[in-house]
Amino acid sequence: MPNVADNTTVPAVEARDIAAGKGSDPAFSALSFRIEPGSFTALVGPNGAGKTTLFESILGLIAPHSGELRVLGDKPCRMRRQTAYVPQAAGIAHDDALIGREFVCAACNAHRLGVALPRARRRAREAVNAALDTVGARDLAERRLSTLSGGQRQRLLIAQALVEQPRLILLDEPLSQLDPAARDWIVTVARRLTERGIAVIFSTHDINPVLGACDRVLYLAQGRGRIGSVDEIICERTLSELYATPMRVIRDSGRRFVFEGGQSRALAEAG
């Protein structure tokens, strides 16, 4: 396997001038960025800007039309075992019958055929406990999923993504439909993952909940993308370039709000 020795220097994701989309029309083009191991990147943009397309490209589920995309130094489809995707909690509805521990455990060695032998089962139990501790969900281990809130389910989803010790985690709108306290929890958990060297890409339509946690912002709009610090990206100059129309950014008590052209129509809450 390439690049095992230099985990810390190989970028988690490196895109050079990529264009990608589901049909023949690319959702974005000429996109270049680099995501370092252990960094927290907020992926922001309006609906339809290509956030999902970018995730699918990184997961190797769709191939970019052009340009070069490398994940952990290799082709995306060859790094799937070290990349974890966390879908939205609303997407899991078939599992009310099981407890949290069983749900998290389902990801253990899931690509292997046959049933787990006792030794593998012991190792899996340890991995599940460690993952539950990381997301602060040990108390959910014995509770049925049907009794959990959206935020609690989201934490179990992240724990499930952790059991195979990925080096890159893609979180797909993990804050949608959560109350503010649950949002803070999820952002804190995601930040904690970066301390272990895991690169986190966190898609969100609202930048405000992750302002204090993210290292960089990757903003997609109008088929274009920019990456940089919060101040470099969520500013009038960059956003006006991205949207190709004058944009206004208003700061209020640590939050940022984005408007089109100085008029009162909000595009999204800073998104």
Partner: peptide
């Protein structure tokens, strides 16, 4: 059934994550 037990379990409980993992 025993042969596909683990991929089937993951694909049943979280199909999107399973697909992303290459299952």
């Amino acid at each position: 059934l025993a042969a596909i037990f683990r991929p089937l379990r993951f694909a049943s409980l979280n199909p999107e994550a399973a697909r992303a993992r290459g299952i």
